[in-house]
């Protein structure tokens, strides 16, 4: 119980700091890859603080409420995860949060936001099977959906879940909103959809979307970490290193590709889920 409270409080306080720093590092590395100097590592924090001081405007009476709910439930998702709750419950709560974001975009009835929302739904449909298969994989290997139980396994789950791990890293590109699958919105200016999903969000509302993204990224890296935890210090070190490596890989992918069509996102994610995830599940049952 004490462990649970410490973890949750740590997540609440540290996640935005780590998430923001990672975003700053992302921008720095990306800039270097593109031959630019790039902004300060603390730039994401300056951006968000500036957003908070913008004029208070909105396009309708309900949009900001939906975004607040999105923010709240992203945080709840992370808290559940770090409190050691059931993985499936964590994922379903994340879906709830995502639907709030989509509904917020729809509510503006703005062309750019709505096309972004449609693409966001498509992305959800693309990554969801792989995410669920990952949860099931953990359960089949460890006999429990609970995060704390999974962390106590004597061997690193990744040994038996290697297919699922690769598949999960694949769909992380969608979740981190990196090219080639940054269909619904991205940080870059060079896109056809203006801000996509977030076109109509501004000021403190947009700040909330950004902060939610930091919270979500830390939680997602927590999922990556879970593949390597074995209840020992070695697992923690390997896990953290792999998390950083995965993050770097996503930055690299993001800078190496142009945005692709939505068909590619759906086809490839589902194929990966079916082949890597599916075969891994069959293997797990075969091994018993």
């Amino acid at each position: 119980m004490v462990k649970m409270i410490i973890c949750v409080v740590a997540y609440l306080i540290l996640a935005p700091l780590i998430g923001g720093l990672l975003a700053g590092i992302d921008r720095k590395i990306s800039a270097r890859m593109q031959g630019r100097v790039g902004p300060s590592i603390l730039q994401p924090f300056y951006d968000v603080l500036k957003l908070l001081e913008k004029e208070k405007i909105t396009v309708n009476r309900v949009q900001d409420f939906y975004i607040a709910c999105f923010f709240l439930f992203v945080i709840v998702t992370g808290c559940m995860f770090f409190a050691g709750q059931s993985l499936l419950m964590v994922m379903f709560t994340l879906t709830l949060a995502s639907v709030f974001l989509i509904v917020a975009a729809f509510s503006s009835n703005s062309p750019y936001a709505q096309v972004g929302a449609e693409r966001e739904m498509l992305q959800m449909m693309a990554y969801e099977p792989m995410v669920l298969i990952a949860c099931v994989g953990f359960y089949m290997y460890t006999g429990s959906f609970d995060v704390y139980d999974i962390m106590e396994t004597p061997h690193m789950p990744v040994v038996y879940l290697c297919g699922i791990f690769v598949g999960f890293v694949f769909i992380l590109t969608i979740k981190f909103r990196k090219a080639p699958f940054d269909l619904s919105m991205s940080h870059h200016a060079h896109q056809e959809l203006v801000g996509g999903l977030k076109t109509e969000f501004s000021g403190s509302t947009l700040a909330m979307v950004e902060a939610a993204h930091w919270y979500e990224n830390v939680f997602l890296l927590g999922m990556v970490f879970l593949f390597f935890s074995n209840g020992e210090i070695s697992g923690i070190i390997v896990g953290l290193v792999v998390c950083l490596a995965a993050y770097f890989l996503e930055i690299l992918i993001g800078n190496s590709f142009a945005r692709m069509k939505w068909q590619v996102a759906l086809n490839s994610s589902w194929l990966v889920a079916l082949i890597l995830g599916g075969c891994n599940l069959f293997a797990l049952i075969f091994i018993g």
């Binding site: 004029e55 208070k56 405007i57 909105t58 396009v59 009476r61 900001d64 503006s108 703005s110």
Partner: peptide, 10 residues
């Protein structure tokens, strides 16, 4: 409920 000014969409 919102206290913000309502503006046209983009």
């Amino acid at each position: 409920r919102t206290k913000k000014r309502i503006v046209p969409i983009y």
